[in-house]
């Protein structure tokens, strides 16, 4: 029934294509509208949270495994770029690929171990693993320099194909255009994994593992697929982040990232592409709007309280998240539309 309801709010095929093209064009044109580095940094943050949240939603929303250790792959990916990259003499792109491959492998191993446990025990176990990872990053001074952070990660240098010129990336706008391909790749992977037969298999696994198994859908295989792909994406993102801010700290895998991910995904609409994108957009823009609106920056603690209240309120009153709200509004509009036409 929910399937039918969801379908009724969908745009026709040409509408969706047109919407997708215009959104891509908007993403490409956006930084041209402003010259402020502040605004462009905000756009990079938004893109970063979109990638982060989509990869998290693959695991939590579609495979149904609420991993509270997702930022570990981000942080370790960043450390790979900061520690392994220079030693192996890798460039920006190969660094990201290395981080993606290593994090996918790590996720595969972690998944084989952690998917022996299910449900809330899985969430608790991954939270424990995340705390161990953060404690090690904080205390293994010889490797990570602990809270002193690793500084001076190289800025990307890109060789433009068929020419001899190398492009040194330093400006925010250049970073923005570097982050977009990663976002587009993430979106394509996300949509490919969550539509058609694959998507239905994920739904089956999430809703009832035993029944999924009974109809020939191996829960372990699909959960491993989601975790591996999600970790690969977020590992590459961590590597990007290291080359962008040029500093890697233990806080790159902190629990604050986990809670922000939960807020984005569950307020936006868990398991829904549109919801997750809206959530990432809102929670990247909202703090900056609050800053701009007030005379002074609001404290991070107050911001977290507001976020927490929003999260609990959504869970209690609007479990489908913003995505569900959008569906309901569009359905209402569509129902109202024809009736108005009938009246002369």
């Amino acid at each position: 029934m929910s399937q039918g309801a969801a379908r009724s709010t969908r745009l026709p095929r040409w509408g969706r294509v047109a919407l997708a093209i215009s959104l891509v064009l908007l993403a490409l044109a956006l930084p041209r509208l402003t010259s402020s580095g502040y605004a462009i940094n905000a756009m990079i943050t938004t893109v970063r949270w979109m990638i982060f949240a989509l990869s998290f939603d693959l695991v939590a929303g579609h495979a149904g495994a609420v991993s509270l250790g997702h930022p570990v792959f981000f942080g370790v990916g960043a450390y790979v770029a900061a520690i392994l990259g220079p030693r192996l003499g890798l460039t920006f792109i190969s660094d990201m690929l290395l981080a993606a491959v290593l994090m996918a492998l790590l996720a595969l191993l972690a998944g084989i171990a952690f998917f022996r446990i299910r449900g809330v025990t899985f969430a608790i176990g991954t939270l424990g693993a995340a705390i161990i990872a953060q404690l090690i990053a904080n205390n293994a001074f010889t490797i990570t320099r602990g809270p002193m952070c690793i500084q001076g990660v190289a800025r990307p240098e890109l060789t433009i194909p068929f020419t001899e010129t190398t492009l040194r990336v330093a400006e925010p706008i250049q970073y923005y255009y570097l982050s977009l391909p990663l976002l587009f790749i993430t979106i394509i992977i996300y949509l490919a994994l969550t539509s058609s037969r694959l998507g239905r298999a994920f739904t089956a696994v999430r809703e009832d593992e035993v029944r999924a198994f009974a109809v020939g859908v191996s829960p372990l295989r699909y959960k491993l697929l989601a975790l591996t792909v999600g970790a690969g994406i977020v590992g590459a993102l961590g590597s990007f982040q290291a080359h962008y801010v040029t500093v890697v700290c233990p806080s790159e895998m902190s629990l604050a990232l986990t809670t922000t991910l939960l807020i984005i995904v569950f307020v936006g609409g868990v398991g829904s592409f549109r919801g997750v994108m809206i959530g990432a957009l809102i929670f990247s823009i909202l703090p900056r709007l609050l800053e701009a609106g007030g005379t002074q920056a609001i404290s991070p603690a107050l911001q977290q309280v507001v976020y927490g209240v929003i999260l609990v309120a959504v869970m209690v009153f609007m479990p489908g998240g913003l995505d569900d709200l959008v569906s309901r509004v569009t359905r209402r509009l569509r129902k109202a539309g024809p009736r108005e036409e009938q009246q002369p």
Binding site: V66, Q304, V305, Y307, G308, L311, V312
Partner: peptide, 12 residues
């Protein structure tokens, strides 16, 4: 839902 809601309470 239990886990996310109580984590939200914890943040608050």
């Amino acid at each position: 839902t239990h886990a996310v809601t109580t984590l939200g309470l914890s943040i608050i």
